[in-house]
Nucleic acid binder design. Structure first.
Lengths: 187, 187
DNA sequence: ACCTCACTTCATTTTGAATTGAAGAATTGC
DNA sequence: GCAATTCTTCAATTCAAAATGAAGTGAGGT
């Protein structure tokens, strides 16, 4: 439809005539056409993913799909984002696992097409459940373990350190308590 | 498996039987127990820093100071954490800027010694203010800019995309609203 | 069965942030 | 002033995570 000049039809090694596609980030504040909006979304979500400690390709893919009225095949994703098939394959798998993206095989088609789930919750949960929660839990255990090492130290040192360890532990507890609430709210 | 381990695995075998060489001159040579606890804290906070998108050295330094009854000089920090002077210097500067660590020059001493502020808030603010907030704000602007590119597209596409952009924008607004609340709670 | 096309896997390469370390600047004491 | 000591800076290095891409797998169609 719109000026998508990238005629696929074959996976020949693309050379990507870049004359037109990479605009300077500063200027060109007004995107033009579907492809540009999709690129913009991809970029925004890439940053978000990166912010949350995920590979930015995950975000790019999600963003592209989020800005796609129609589901896209892996090939189209690879083409539009200019990423490798490997990255696309793994990214899509992860996104499907996270329930952020839905695969569908249309009647008689061989290709699987993907569309974004529009709820943003998966994106947040991805972070909370897979990054924050486990790591905080781990830290909490290690913190508790530290108290065992106190025995045998100078009494005044013991007291100081015990108080500090307890302080850190208290903070951990708070964080673990509130994460579910945060998620609930953002979901 | 949630990768993202960034274990950092301090591999320096650290001469265990330290013999006699370097000990803090101030308090009469704490037994080894203290050093281990300090290492543990450093490691825990290193993970935390990493989780929040900061160099883990920042966390190590803070953790060491957090577990130090007495303020430490940069030299002692370098020695205990086995990091370079460059890393220590920059890390300390950052931590002081963030108000997570306090420098003090004791009477007649040439060295500056550092101690951790015990409130954990700076550590959280470091993340919220310096990572999340600016980036979310930036994304929000870019999102808004995307709507300008809609003109000229197929009407049904416009409608779909506008709804989706609005959805993302709404989410952004929510996040920006709640961050201060989160901070308030964790501080 | 055989061929094709769609996708996955994974050893290698790339990338970029963190770290190093030595040269230079700043501060203090003489 | 000079010397000694503490600290900063930054070009070069390191290293792990991410991306690549070609070989491998397997499902469909004929």
């Amino acid at each position: 439809m719109p000026q998508a000049s990238t005629a696929k039809a074959s996976k020949a090694p693309q050379r990507r005539a870049k004359g037109s596609s990479d605009q300077p980030p500063s200027a060109a504040a007004f995107p033009d056409g579907l492809a540009d909006i999709q690129k913009g979304m991809a970029s925004i979500f890439a940053d978000l993913a990166d912010l949350l400690g995920n590979p930015s390709s995950l975000g790019s893919i999600y963003g592209l799909l989020f800005a796609s009225p129609e589901p896209l095949s892996m090939d189209e994703i690879v083409d539009r984002l200019d990423i490798s098939t490997g990255t696309a394959s793994q990214g899509l798998r992860r996104l499907v696992e996270l329930d952020a993206v839905v695969p569908s095989k249309a009647d008689g088609e061989r290709v699987t097409r993907y569309s974004a789930k529009l709820e943003l919750r998966p994106f947040i949960s991805m972070f909370l459940d897979q990054q924050l929660m486990p790591r905080l839990g781990n830290s909490r255990e290690r913190l508790a373990g530290l108290e065992n090492g106190l025995a045998g130290l100078d009494p005044s040192v013991i007291q100081t350190l015990q108080a500090r360890i307890e302080r850190a532990a208290k903070w951990h507890r708070r964080a673990m308590t509130f994460l579910p609430i945060i998620r609930r709210f953002l979901g």
